[in-house]
Simulated assay, not measured.
Amino acid sequence: MTAGLHPTATDALLDLCVAAGDAICSEYSSSRADEFRAKADDSPLTRADIASHRILIEGLERLSPAVPVLSEESKPAAIADRRSWERLWVVDPLDGTKEFLGRTGEFTINIALVDRQRPVLGILYLPLERAAWVGVPGEGAWRCLPDGDGWARYPVSATPPAHEGVVVLASRRHRNARLERAIAYLEAEAGPVQRRNSGSALKFVQLAAGQGDVYPRFSPCSEWDVAAGQALLEAAGGAVLGLDGEPLRYNARDTLLSPHFLAVADPSLPLWRELLAQL
């Protein structure tokens, strides 16, 4: 395949997503779906998070034993040496745990392969839809659906159809003054703003599918929330830019919190650089 993987690796990764996604769906439909405990950062941890993590860790270690895994649910001891890893998997076993608990259905599995701080492969899997979005920067992006014993692939592009104004994709649960200033600036400079809210990494999927113009993120999130989405969006023709205007890098700092960013469908538009200058 792509990104230095064997040609059969993509299907194997997608099959692994199905196994983890089915475990999530089993918990989602169970009588214990609303059970959770708070982690150190006060975010919720469910039985679904743990089940998906275990399946993905075991599967990735089997598929690529030489590539370490950095998961949201990794124990500190398992990732103590992460800064020395040039090539690694960055995984969120259940992105959108609050959406899972809130029964919105807006949650994903995120898997990124990071090589020398850049995401070179991204998979966002939607468990309830049994659909995956795969991106390899420089090669292309696809929506993937199960097809018999394999997967059917349909190319996608971040180029949105012509429309008036700007479609802003935003988090359902995060609002702040900087986001409101950004939206006000876009409305003043580019016409009416249509805001579409959704949870988890679905904003990256929507951008890659040409369903929006920009996803501004100025509230806390972590590298496993963003890495797969960046690979997907770059592969579809878009970009994820830090407030310095440069693409985000991963496993490059002591913290695993992601910098604030703009994810954009068309990085050639001067509007985004102008917006960044205002932030």
Rank of each mutant, 00 (worst) to 15 (best):
M1F: 09
H6G: 02
T8W: 08
D15G: 12
L16M: 10
C17P: 13
A20P: 14
A23V: 03
I24V: 12
D34I: 00
E35A: 13
K39N: 03
K39R: 04
A48M: 12
S52E: 08
L56C: 14
E58I: 01
G59S: 05
S64L: 05
P65E: 12
A66P: 00
P68W: 14
L70N: 08
E72D: 02
K75M: 15
K75Y: 04
D81W: 04
E86T: 13
D92C: 14
P93D: 01
E99H: 14
R103N: 00
R103F: 03
F107H: 10
I111K: 10
L113K: 10
L113D: 10
R118D: 06
L121C: 02
G122P: 01
P127A: 13
A131E: 05
G140K: 00
G140C: 02
R143H: 00
P146N: 11
A152W: 08
A152G: 15
P155S: 04
V156N: 07
S157W: 07
P161A: 15
A170T: 11
H174W: 11
H174D: 10
R175M: 06
A177M: 07
E180R: 02
A184Y: 13
A188I: 08
G191N: 13
P192N: 14
P192M: 13
G199V: 14
V205P: 11
A209H: 11
Q211F: 06
G212H: 03
Y215N: 15
P216K: 06
P216I: 06
C221P: 07
A228Q: 03
L233A: 12
L233T: 10
G237D: 05
D244P: 07
P247K: 04
P247H: 04
P247C: 04
L248Q: 11
N251Q: 07
H260I: 00
V264P: 04
S268D: 01
S268T: 06
S268H: 09
P270H: 13
W272N: 14
E274L: 08
A277K: 07
A277Y: 02
L279W: 04
L279I: 02
